[in-house]
Amino acid sequence: MSKLMMVILILPVLFILQVIQQDLEHASHVYFRSKHGLNHAVQAAVQQIDTNLLSDGIIDLDAVLAEQVLKNYLMVNLKVDSQLIPTAGSFLRDPIQRYRVIYIDHLRTFPYELNTELGDIIQFQRPGVYLECQIQYPRLYGLLPPIKWDIRSAGQVVPLPPR
C-alpha cells in the first residue's frame, strides 16, 4: 500500500518535470530560430547598396530600401505581418516588441563602435545595420514564467567576392 501511495505521489512530480524540460527544450529552439530569422533579415538589408552614392565611389546603404527588405525578410522568416504580429503557422504567439533598427552610414569614422541600450558594443568596419527585437517565448504549458529575449543581429555591407 505504501509503495502504491509513493508511486501515486511521485508520478505527478515526474510528469511536471518532464513538461518543464520539454518547454525549456522548445524555448531554446524558438530562440535560435528567431536569431536566424533576424540574421537573414540583416544579411538581406546590408546588400542594399545606394547606387547613386556608389557612382561617386562611396559605398553606403540605401536606408529606405534596406528597411523594406529587412522587414520583408523578417516577416517571411518569423511568419509575422507588417505590424510584427504573428500570422497563422508562426512559431511565435505574441507580437514582436521593441523593433529597433540602427543604420550605420558612411559618414561615421570607421572602425565605428556602436554602444547599444542593451549594453553591447559592436564594432563596424564598414556601413551596416543593427537590428534589435524583443521576442516573447510562446510557452507550451503554463508552468514556466514568461520568457522574453532581446535578440540582436548586426551586419555590414557585404564585400564583393575576390577575383
Binding site: 520539454q22 530560430r33 536566424h36 537573414h40
Partner: peptide
C-alpha cells in the same frame, strides 16, 4: 503518459534538426 514525453522530445529534436539543416544549406 510517461512515454508521451519521450516521443515529444524526439519530435522536437527532429524539428530542430530540420531547421538547423535549412539554415546551414541556405548559408
Amino acid at each position: 503518459m510517461m512515454f508521451s514525453g519521450i516521443y515529444t522530445h524526439v519530435l522536437l529534436s527532429r524539428q530542430v534538426l530540420l531547421q538547423q539543416e535549412v539554415n546551414y544549406l541556405l548559408e
